[in-house]
Amino acid sequence: MSVSIVSRATWGASPWAGTPDTVALSQRTEYFVHYDGAAHINRTGYAVMRAIEAEHLGNGWSGVGYNFVVDHAGTIFEGRGWTLQGAHCPGHNVSGIGVQIAIGGDQEPSAKALAAARALYDEACRRTGRTLAKRGHRDGYATLCPGRKLYKWVQAGMPAQGYEPTTPDGPSIPSTGGTVARYQVTINGLTYGYGAKGDHVTALGRALVAHGFGKHYSSGPGPVWTDADTLNFSDYQRSLGYEGTAPHEDADGVPGETSLRRLLGTLPGPAKPAPTTPAFPGRDKFRTGANNPFVTQLGRQLVKKGFGTHYTSGPGPRWSEADRQNVAAFQRSQGWTGAEADGYPGPETWRRLFA
């Protein structure tokens, strides 16, 4: 079955309300099937797309959130297409191609719609060069979507009556109903396992590659944990002598503290936030007669930096000559002279003192 897609221009899409980010095909690893919701959908054609677009724009999105939509007649419509990030499944909008089959509730999907959705899946596999994981929306997010009937179809491998599916080349990623572990763990404040995100995920992937355990990657490790990371880490765990690759067994590919430390040599923790400089409260807070907490704050920082020699009883809230002389000493340490080292702090003196 050849794939014919009705373009955005043809069905009359509105201009993007802010263009979605571009996604490389090499980042696509999943194919998510969605439905419309509780009500049956009787419309087909351009009207379906315009109704979806109106709803999604009302959500504050850039436009239709699915990459493609298949109506009951088996027509495929372009939404975000192959190259734009979707807005269909949080955490999977980069890795997943989102396809809505425009039915709802307990509505029976038509043979034409299923055949078109399956043909689109095969085309996605051909374009990405890999066998994409077959997912229902609920596999990535807590929802009833895509409904009981469509989800059963996904679990069955997305068969289509009278349609001979192709077998794309490239690595295969397990689909719904597989045995790859899909849970997460938190170790030393960082999350690992399917869907985890962050630089620490990339670092772990690179360490796996460096140790010779990267064969399941198709385009190298990245910041989002996929089944490829799980499979590679499972290989590493088994190299350490762990056994059992089913979810929650010792070599299921989700790190434990021991295996993670063995791989990385340490247990990484969250990056510490950079210290912030308190806002400068204004020159009027540091003048003769001033009495406020900012004078105490300034004085304590001067002492901390080693410029408290003029205090006799420590800093306090009342501005004094000792405060002025200590500030002047700090200013001179910055290379300032004359009026720039008069002992009265301005925004730059404050910034450098608290840096």
Rank of each mutant, 00 (worst) to 15 (best):
L208V: 02
T83Q: 10
G289W: 13
Q100H: 00
P293K: 14
E55L: 10
L120W: 03
A117S: 15
H200E: 02
T179D: 15
H137C: 08
T296Y: 12
W319E: 07
R80K: 11
E53W: 05
L120F: 03
V64A: 03
G244C: 11
R118H: 09
V94M: 01
P146R: 12
L190A: 07
S26C: 05
P268S: 05
A115Y: 09
R8Q: 13
A116N: 04
W336R: 15
A117W: 08
R324K: 13
V201D: 07
D106W: 10
G195W: 02
H56Y: 01
Y192N: 06
G162I: 09
S320Y: 04
V224G: 06
H34D: 02
T296W: 09
T143L: 07
S219L: 00
Q107F: 12
A210S: 14
R80Q: 14
G265D: 01
T179R: 12
A24N: 09
G269Y: 05
S26D: 11
A111C: 00
L150C: 12
Y31E: 09
G170V: 04
E55Q: 12
R283A: 14
D122E: 15
A251W: 13
A116R: 01
W82H: 08
F307S: 04
G65R: 13
K304F: 09
W350A: 06
G314I: 10
R182P: 01
R8L: 11
H216V: 03
W16S: 11
I41A: 08
H137S: 14
V23S: 11
I5L: 08
N93E: 06
P159Y: 04
G147W: 09
Y217K: 12
N292K: 05
Q325C: 06
G96S: 03
G282L: 03
G81L: 02
F307V: 01
R130W: 05
G198V: 02
G193A: 03
M49D: 10
Q161L: 13
N67C: 05
E164G: 11
S2W: 01
A228T: 05
Q237P: 00
G244Y: 12
R118V: 03
R287T: 15
G335Y: 07
G81D: 05
L260N: 02
N291V: 13
F280D: 05
R148A: 14
A39C: 07
L144G: 15
P247C: 09
I101D: 02
A115F: 06
V33Q: 07
G79F: 08
D21K: 12
D122Y: 14
P15V: 00
G316Q: 13
K272A: 15
R126I: 09
G253P: 04
L353G: 08
G346Q: 10
G136E: 05
V224N: 11
S333W: 02
V69G: 01
T277K: 11
E164Q: 14
L25W: 00
R43E: 14
R182A: 14
K152V: 14
R324C: 03
N67P: 02
R43H: 11
E30A: 13
G343L: 07
R127W: 07
R126W: 02
R300T: 04
T202I: 01
S313K: 08
Q100L: 15
Y236H: 09
A339K: 14
L132H: 04
R300A: 01
P270R: 07
A279Y: 00
S313C: 00
C89K: 08
G338D: 12
A156G: 04
V180G: 01
Y163M: 09
Q184K: 13
